[in-house]
Design a protein around this nucleic acid. Structure first.
Length: 464
RNA sequence: GGCGCGUUGGUCUAGCGGCUUAGGACGGCAGGUUCUCAACCUGCAAAUCACCGGUUCGAAUCCGGUACGCGUCACCA
């Protein structure tokens, strides 16, 4: 039974788009293998905790359709799924390591650690804990008894070669000399990430640890922990980190990073996921647009490339446009209605949908294009003061129309333009601006039909 | 700086030693269609496959080195 998991930290306003990417891969892999996808909240850093963050992360995940089988809000066989509620486990396992002699207590102060680090850096050495407390454990225990703050550290033996296999990157080797005596249990009784992931992944029977590349360098620490406990290791897969256009790690400064931002902009969940799936992976048939079901069918973890791809919003928009064009009218109408917070009449929106579906790439593009349907233009992007005669003739011609249909309007207008000897482009541009206020709009005749005769005549009348 | 990972057009990628004068997609440019903008159609430009050496009859593809990029070196995850 394949069991995958994502382990977000509730330290931001929402789930990061990079984490959504990791979530998608985990979700897809679980689905493909008819396994389980789990969400575990890693809230062990009390100082960086952000209120409501967990709730938003879960909500956004669901909004994207990445539903999970076990999680903090729905429970599951290995609950609780919030690390802050699993403190007893970490304490127990940390002590087990002490008993086994592979971990030790440490009472060094932050000040001493800082001093040590600056000194080492000055001497161009690798900043590492100097095992000061390791050799004086009896004293340390005394200090602790007297109430001194302490942490539990992992005793990393030097000179050992650690090898592990990553599904995406192959075999990776590293010398234990490069590893620090990692703190496992902090002085506030909370575990560090390194202890908590290993313990929880083991306890929750996670089979595949699929996470971002930034964790690759600390994987050897985890391997050492698995060995110390005598546990079987999970299969590792480190997916690439999404990049900014300048190739740095995707960041707030250079890109919108919160997954819900894309939803607010009117990117459709499936479109975003489709785009994300294309990061570091491609469909065997080179198809670019495919749904989740298709993705799960043909996806394979080992086909993910290890290069960090740049997140390209332009291509995302193209994919989104493709999805919008495929969305049925009534559905698209509802989406627009919702995205506008129901402030505009639904029936009017419905009539405009066929006119705009090929002109918007995301729902947020709708209003700038269509506002004129709901209210009269406040300004005109073209000087119409010299066009009053023309507008007057148009007004007269339009008022004669009894069957207010785009086709009829179009025919009458064409004829009028011809009769007056005005070039089509000029004629329609004048009329367009008069009606919509803008030089860019949905097809004019159809728009006028939607607007209805009375409204159109009124708008013209105001200008002459 | 140490360690780790990576490097095919601007971007996402195909490629698994001969099928490749390196293919597709986004974007760009030009044209067509047209009442504007899109959509759609046609065409074009754009990669000496980071560089240098090696293996081989033959390398984008295998090996080594260099450069560059990214990640990581916390009582953060």
């Amino acid at each position: 039974m394949v069991r995958t998991r994502i382990a977000p930290s509730p330290t931001g306003e929402d789930i990061h788009i990079g984490n959504l990417y990791t979530a998608l891969i985990n979700w897809a892999w679980a689905k493909k293998n008819k396994g389980k996808f789990i969400v575990r909240i890693e809230d062990t850093d009390r100082s960086r905790l952000v209120r409501d963050s967990e709730q938003k992360i879960l909500k956004t995940l669901k909004a994207y359709g990445l539903t999970y089988d076990e999680g903090p809000d729905i429970g599951g066989p290995y609950k609780p799924y919030r690390q802050s509620e699993r403190l007893d486990y970490y304490k127990k396992y940390a002590e087990e390591l002490i008993d086994k002699g592979v971990a030790y207590y440490c009472t060094c102060t932050k000040e001493r650690l800082d001093e040590l680090r600056t000194l080492q850096q000055k001497q161009k050495q690798i900043p590492k804990y100097d095992k000061f407390c390791l050799v004086r454990q009896t004293d340390v225990k005394q200090e602790i008894k007297k109430g001194k703050q302490f942490v539990i550290r992992f005793n990393v033996l030097s000179g050992k070669e650690i090898v592990f296999r990553d599904v995406i990157r192959g075999d990776i080797k590293i010398l234990s000399d490069n590893l620090d005596d990692q703190v496992l249990l902090k002085s506030d009784g909370f575990p560090t990430y390194h202890l908590a992931v290993v313990v929880d992944d083991y306890l929750m029977k996670i089979t595949h640890v699929i996470r971002a590349e930034e964790w690759l360098s600390s994987t050897p620490k985890h391997i050492l922990l698995y060995k110390a406990f005598g546990w079987d290791m999970p299969i590792y897969a480190h997916v690439p980190i999404l990049r900014n256009p300048d190739r740095s790690k995707l960041s707030k400064r250079k890109n919108p990073v919160w997954a819900s931002w894309y939803l607010k902009q009117g990117f459709l969940p499936e479109a975003v996921l489709n785009y994300l799936a294309l990061m570091g992976w491609s469909h065997p048939k080179q198809i670019e647009i495919f749904n989740l079901e298709e993705f799960v069918k043909v996806f394979d973890l080992k086909n993910i490339k290890s290069v960090g791809p740049a997140f390209d919003q332009v291509k995302l928009e193209w994919i989104n446009g493709e999805y919008i064009r495929k969305t049925p009218d009534s559905k698209l109408k509802s989406l627009i209605f919702e995205s506008l917070e129901k402030k505009y009449p639904e029936d009017l929106i419905e009539k405009t949908v066929p006119l705009v579906r090929e002109r918007i790439k995301k729902l947020a593009d709708y209003l700038p294009l269509c506002e004129f349907f709901f209210e009269k233009p406040k300004k005109y992007n073209l000087d119409l003061s010299q066009k009053k005669d023309l507008l007057k003739r148009i007004y007269e011609e339009l008022s004669k129309i009894s069957s207010w249909k785009a086709e009829v309007i179009g025919e009458k207008m064409q004829n009028l333009a011809k009769k007056l000897g005005v070039k089509n482009s000029e004629f329609f541009m004048t009329l367009r601006v008069a009606i919509t206020g803008k030089k860019i709009s949905p097809p004019l005749n159809e728009s006028m039909e939607v607007l209805d005769k009375k409204e159109c005549l009124q708008r013209l009348d105001n200008l002459v």
